[in-house]
């Protein structure tokens, strides 16, 4: 990984905040999706849109996870700590 100064570290956390912010606020904007049409596979827009938000927020959260992981690793290295534990827990 390339050298990162503190500014890009802050940038990473801003990106995390934006991604999560969209994930939290988006599903609460009922006025955006309180419509019956267009329907999809028999589902009114209101319902399929909310179902659609599930994978979208999931992807946003995963992106936030990857960015946060990278930023944490850089910060830990800068403070002389070992790499973040838990790389081995994919089971």
């Amino acid at each position: 990984m390339a050298e990162h100064d503190t500014t890009s570290g802050t940038g990473a956390w801003v990106a995390v905040a934006v991604l999560l912010g969209i994930g939290i606020v988006g599903p609460l904007l009922v006025f955006v999706y309180d419509s019956e049409t267009p329907t999809l596979l028999g589902f009114p827009f209101y319902y399929w849109f909310q179902f659609l938000m599930i994978p979208i927020v999931s992807v946003l959260t995963y992106a936030a996870f990857r960015i946060a992981q990278g930023a944490t690793r850089r910060e830990r290295r800068a403070r002389g700590l070992g790499p973040e534990a838990g790389k081995e827990d994919r089971r």
């Binding site: 319902y47 909310q50 179902f51 599930i54 994978p55 927020v57 999931s58 992807v59 959260t61 995963y62 936030a64 996870f65 946060a68 992981q69 944490t72 973040e84 534990a85 838990g86 790389k87 827990d89």
Partner: peptide
């Protein structure tokens, strides 16, 4: 086990919301 598990799961758990809906 560690902090990462929480964050990784946070992106995997929404799969359940689909069935819940």
């Amino acid at each position: 086990k560690n902090r990462s598990v929480i964050r990784r799961n946070a992106s995997l758990l929404p799969a359940y919301s689909f069935l819940l809906g």
